[in-house]
């Protein structure tokens, strides 16, 4: 019994700041899914944000400080998993560049980044999960968030796992690979352009005939949900992990009605 416990891989869950602040259920869904896949989950309290707001604003110095904090908090784990393609992409693909030429940090960041995974691809690719014990009666559509899709190659995995959910029908979203217009600070700095882009997206979501929109990144989800709500749409929005974990009791993102 003790022996078996030791051999379970230890996962450090990088909750992401948006999940922590706005949508804790995604964090609990992630914990359940990772545990169900045969791992133990820890949530280091020293985590804050991956640093993208600073990184994408050109503030390399603060980004590096935040990255050091994240690496220190997580490097002891076998895997570091985040329920977000964009945050996982930051940890996995962008952290190494921050420490280029620093002999003390280069090996550390390389070892750290190699262990980082986005949640759904971690379940499907690393843990080989093919059986999902969840039920959702309804028609859903799926938006491929940009960082997950293009930095981490996440496309087939969420579709495969959603295919295991009882009662769920997946209707493909035309141009599901086109940006929703979120872009972090972009959506407030260039809010009119962001609005044009998200309006294009929501009209396709509406036309898809789905009653629930899913994606793997909370930033995009809040953007699309916010627009759908403003337009008075009845399409609801959730993080894909909520559905996979069967945790859909609380109101969708942006509330009901």
């Amino acid at each position: 019994m003790t022996q078996q416990k030791v051999t379970k891989p230890r996962v450090g869950l990088f909750v992401t700041c948006l999940v922590d602040l706005f949508r804790p259920v995604v964090g609990f869904a992630a914990v359940k899914l990772i545990e169900d896949s045969g791992c133990t989950v820890d949530i280091p309290m020293a985590q804050t944000c991956c640093g993208q707001p600073a990184y994408n604003s050109g503030d390399r110095k603060d980004t590096r400080a935040i990255a050091q904090n994240t690496i220190e908090a997580f490097e002891e784990y076998d895997y570091i998993v985040a329920p977000s393609g964009s945050c996982a992409g930051m940890l996995k693909k962008h952290y190494p560049g921050l420490f280029k030429g620093d002999p003390a940090w280069e090996p550390r960041v390389a070892a750290f980044s190699a262990k980082v995974h986005e949640l759904v691809s971690f379940l499907a690719d690393v843990r080989g999960v093919s059986d999902i014990d969840a039920r959702l009666d309804g028609t859903v559509t799926y938006h491929d968030s940009c960082s997950g899709l293009r930095e981490l190659g996440i496309r087939a995995q969420p579709r495969a796992l959603l295919g295991q959910v009882d009662g769920l029908t997946l209707r493909e979203l035309p141009d599901s690979d086109v940006c929703c217009g979120f872009g972090g600070t972009f959506c407030v700095k260039y809010s009119d352009i962001s609005n044009a882009i998200v309006s294009e997206k929501t009209s396709k979501i509406e036309a898809s005939g789905a009653d629930l929109l899913l994606a793997g990144d909370l930033g995009c989800l809040m953007n699309m949900a916010g627009k759908l709500k403003r337009q008075g749409s009845s399409v609801e929005t959730r993080h894909v992990a909520e559905v996979l974990a069967g945790m859909t009791d609380q109101p969708p993102i942006g509330g009901r009605g």
Partner: peptide, 8 residues
């Protein structure tokens, strides 16, 4: 342009 989803 959009509603802001509130924290849970």
């Amino acid at each position: 342009h959009r509603e802001l989803p509130a924290p849970e």
